[in-house]
């Protein structure tokens, strides 16, 4: 059988609904971190300035405030192929807009339990308060999250098919 034919067969098999087996060594988690502009993003910046090492599997998305994180963003992230989602903001009391993260806290307390109810593992969706000076905490959070998610493997829950 030629290589082309083999590839074609493999593609046809996949279209038939077979699960694509990903090699465990090659697989790296894809983690989306929603970071607030005033604290966590600055903290991540400081981690960079201090030459701290953390896995490159995390993608930062800068938002004005953790209160900007619509719960639907989190669900969409899982649907579009993220293996983990981090929502990070200022510590309560430190919000640049005074009250944003207090609302985030209530909303995310509920939403985290809500998504777990639908079967998401708690490690995949985490919320952390990281201030602009806590570069070490940012690194530790990313390292821990990556480790936990690598252990769990790729996320198939809520995934849109074929993406």
């Amino acid at each position: 059988m030629s290589l082309e034919q083999e590839t074609l067969n493999a593609v046809q098999e996949n279209q038939g609904g077979a699960v694509v087996q990903e090699a465990p060594e090659a697989w790296k988690p894809k983690i989306l971190a929603f970071t607030c502009n005033w604290c966590t993003y600055a903290g991540a910046d400081l981690a960079g300035l201090n030459r701290m090492k953390y896995p490159a599997d995390v993608r930062l998305l800068r938002l004005p405030c953790s209160g900007r994180v619509n719960p639907q963003f989190v669900l969409h992230a899982f649907q579009k192929g993220c293996d983990g989602v981090l929502v990070c903001g200022c510590h309560p009391g430190d919000c640049h807009y005074s009250t944003g993260n207090y609302f985030t806290r209530r909303r995310m307390l509920l939403y985290r339990r809500y998504l777990e109810y639908f079967g998401i593992e708690p490690e995949r969706f985490q919320i952390r308060w990281i201030s602009g000076s806590e570069a070490g905490k940012f690194r530790d959070t990313v390292v821990d999250t990556c480790e936990a998610i690598t252990k769990l493997g790729p996320n198939h829950k809520f995934r849109e098919e074929g993406r």
Binding site: T99, F103, R106, I127, W129
Partner: peptide, 15 residues
């Protein structure tokens, strides 16, 4: 309603 407001001493799980 609970998501319309907040308390300073709400449950804290994300430290």
């Amino acid at each position: 309603s609970p998501l319309d407001h907040y308390q300073l001493d709400d449950v804290e799980e994300f430290m």
